[in-house]
Protein backbone atom coordinates (compact mmCIF):
# COMPACT_ATOMS: atom_id res chain seq x y z
CA UNK A 1 0.00 0.00 0.00
CA UNK A 2 1.23 3.43 -0.81
CA UNK A 3 1.99 5.64 2.09
CA UNK A 4 0.58 9.09 2.42
CA UNK A 5 3.27 11.71 2.42
CA UNK A 6 2.61 14.71 4.53
CA UNK A 7 2.93 18.18 3.11
CA UNK A 8 5.30 19.14 5.88
CA UNK A 9 7.71 16.44 4.90
CA UNK A 10 7.73 17.60 1.33
CA UNK A 11 8.18 21.20 2.38
CA UNK A 12 11.07 20.40 4.68
CA UNK A 13 12.68 18.43 1.93
CA UNK A 14 12.05 14.99 3.35
CA UNK A 15 11.05 12.73 0.55
CA UNK A 16 8.50 10.00 0.55
CA UNK A 17 11.34 7.51 0.55
CA UNK A 18 11.97 8.25 4.18
CA UNK A 19 8.49 7.41 5.25
CA UNK A 20 8.34 4.37 3.04
CA UNK A 21 11.50 2.86 4.38
CA UNK A 22 10.45 2.66 7.93
CA UNK A 23 8.20 3.75 10.66
CA UNK A 24 8.80 7.23 11.89
CA UNK A 25 8.67 7.25 15.60
CA UNK A 26 6.80 10.04 17.28
CA UNK A 27 7.35 11.39 20.76
CA UNK A 28 4.42 11.76 23.11
CA UNK A 29 5.15 15.44 23.17
CA UNK A 30 4.49 15.58 19.43
CA UNK A 31 1.34 13.52 19.89
CA UNK A 32 0.14 15.95 22.52
CA UNK A 33 0.75 18.93 20.27
CA UNK A 34 -0.81 17.37 17.19
CA UNK A 35 -3.96 16.42 19.09
CA UNK A 36 -4.07 19.47 21.33
CA UNK A 37 -4.18 16.96 24.15
CA UNK A 38 -3.89 17.39 27.87
CA UNK A 39 -1.61 15.12 29.89
CA UNK A 40 -3.35 13.28 32.72
CA UNK A 41 -0.49 11.04 33.80
CA UNK A 42 3.19 10.67 33.05
CA UNK A 43 3.99 14.32 32.31
CA UNK A 44 7.65 13.45 32.88
CA UNK A 45 7.53 10.73 30.22
CA UNK A 46 6.65 12.81 27.18
CA UNK A 47 9.97 12.13 25.52
CA UNK A 48 8.94 8.49 25.13
CA UNK A 49 8.41 7.45 21.55
CA UNK A 50 5.58 5.50 19.98
CA UNK A 51 6.21 3.64 16.76
CA UNK A 52 2.59 3.16 15.67
CA UNK A 53 -0.98 3.98 16.51
CA UNK A 54 -3.85 1.69 17.41
CA UNK A 55 -7.41 3.01 17.64
CA UNK A 56 -9.94 0.77 19.36
CA UNK A 57 -12.75 0.75 21.89
CA UNK A 58 -12.66 -2.98 22.18
CA UNK A 59 -9.91 -4.09 24.52
CA UNK A 60 -9.92 -7.63 23.21
CA UNK A 61 -9.04 -6.25 19.80
CA UNK A 62 -6.15 -4.33 21.31
CA UNK A 63 -4.95 -7.57 22.89
CA UNK A 64 -5.42 -9.45 19.63
CA UNK A 65 -4.08 -7.00 17.08
CA UNK A 66 -2.13 -4.40 19.00
CA UNK A 67 1.64 -4.48 18.93
CA UNK A 68 4.24 -3.49 21.48
CA UNK A 69 5.36 0.09 21.17
CA UNK A 70 1.93 1.42 20.15
CA UNK A 71 -0.02 4.46 21.17
CA UNK A 72 -3.56 3.38 22.03
CA UNK A 73 -6.36 5.76 21.09
CA UNK A 74 -9.64 4.85 22.72
CA UNK A 75 -12.99 6.16 23.81
CA UNK A 76 -13.19 3.68 26.64
CA UNK A 77 -12.15 5.11 29.98
CA UNK A 78 -12.28 2.35 32.61
CA UNK A 79 -9.44 0.67 34.48
CA UNK A 80 -9.39 -2.24 32.06
CA UNK A 81 -7.92 0.08 29.45
CA UNK A 82 -4.89 0.63 31.65
CA UNK A 83 -4.67 -3.11 32.39
CA UNK A 84 -4.89 -3.90 28.72
CA UNK A 85 -2.14 -1.43 27.94
CA UNK A 86 -0.01 -3.04 30.61
CA UNK A 87 -0.52 -6.55 29.23
CA UNK A 88 -0.04 -5.59 25.60
CA UNK A 89 3.08 -3.42 26.14
CA UNK A 90 1.30 -0.28 24.96
CA UNK A 91 3.50 2.79 25.48
CA UNK A 92 0.78 5.34 26.18
CA UNK A 93 -2.98 5.88 25.99
CA UNK A 94 -4.82 8.83 24.50
CA UNK A 95 -8.50 9.13 25.42
CA UNK A 96 -10.54 10.63 22.61
CA UNK A 97 -13.90 12.43 22.26
CA UNK A 98 -13.24 14.39 25.43
CA UNK A 99 -13.89 11.35 27.60
CA UNK A 100 -11.99 11.47 30.85
CA UNK A 101 -11.07 8.45 32.95
CA UNK A 102 -11.86 8.53 36.66
CA UNK A 103 -9.30 9.30 39.33
CA UNK A 104 -8.63 5.64 40.14
CA UNK A 105 -7.79 4.83 36.57
CA UNK A 106 -5.42 7.78 36.42
CA UNK A 107 -3.81 6.69 39.67
CA UNK A 108 -3.33 3.17 38.36
CA UNK A 109 -1.62 4.54 35.27
CA UNK A 110 0.62 6.74 37.39
CA UNK A 111 1.69 3.75 39.47
CA UNK A 112 2.59 1.93 36.31
CA UNK A 113 4.35 4.89 34.76
CA UNK A 114 1.93 4.74 31.86
CA UNK A 115 1.34 8.15 30.27
CA UNK A 116 -2.27 9.17 29.72
CA UNK A 117 -3.36 11.87 27.28
CA UNK A 118 -6.78 13.34 26.73
CA UNK A 119 -8.13 15.07 23.65
CA UNK A 120 -11.49 16.52 22.67
CA UNK A 121 -11.07 15.33 19.10
CA UNK A 122 -13.14 12.37 17.98
CA UNK A 123 -11.49 9.04 17.23
CA UNK A 124 -11.37 9.40 13.46
CA UNK A 125 -9.85 12.83 13.52
CA UNK A 126 -7.32 11.92 16.21
CA UNK A 127 -6.11 8.94 14.23
CA UNK A 128 -6.23 10.90 11.00
CA UNK A 129 -4.10 13.75 12.27
CA UNK A 130 -1.45 11.43 13.65
CA UNK A 131 -1.41 9.32 10.50
CA UNK A 132 -1.08 12.40 8.34
CA UNK A 133 1.94 13.39 10.37
CA UNK A 134 3.63 10.07 9.74
CA UNK A 135 2.58 7.76 12.55
CA UNK A 136 1.90 4.39 10.95
CA UNK A 137 -0.72 1.81 11.79
CA UNK A 138 -0.34 -1.64 13.29
CA UNK A 139 -0.69 -3.47 9.96
CA UNK A 140 2.09 -1.43 8.42
CA UNK A 141 4.54 -2.13 11.16
CA UNK A 142 7.15 -4.73 10.47
CA UNK A 143 7.87 -5.28 14.15
Amino acid sequence: MERIVTTERVVTGETSVGSEVGAEKMTLEEVRDILGAEVLAGAHLLSLEVSMGCGADLMSDVLAYGKPGSLLLTGLTNQQVVRTAEMADIVAICFVRGKRPDEETVEMAKRQELPLLWTRLPMFESCGRLYRRGLIGVSESTD
Partner: peptide
Amino acid sequence: ELGFGAGMGLVNMQK
Protein backbone atom coordinates in the same frame (compact mmCIF):
# COMPACT_ATOMS: atom_id res chain seq x y z
CA GLU B 1 -19.13 -1.84 27.94
CA LEU B 2 -15.92 -2.73 29.72
CA GLY B 3 -14.32 -3.42 26.36
CA PHE B 4 -14.59 -7.16 26.58
CA GLY B 5 -17.14 -9.84 25.75
CA ALA B 6 -16.85 -9.39 22.01
CA GLY B 7 -16.16 -13.02 21.37
CA MET B 8 -12.40 -12.64 21.17
CA GLY B 9 -11.27 -14.02 24.51
CA LEU B 10 -10.69 -17.64 23.65
CA VAL B 11 -9.51 -16.63 20.19
CA ASN B 12 -6.90 -14.36 21.72
CA MET B 13 -5.78 -17.06 24.10
CA GLN B 14 -5.37 -19.44 21.21
CA LYS B 15 -3.44 -16.83 19.28
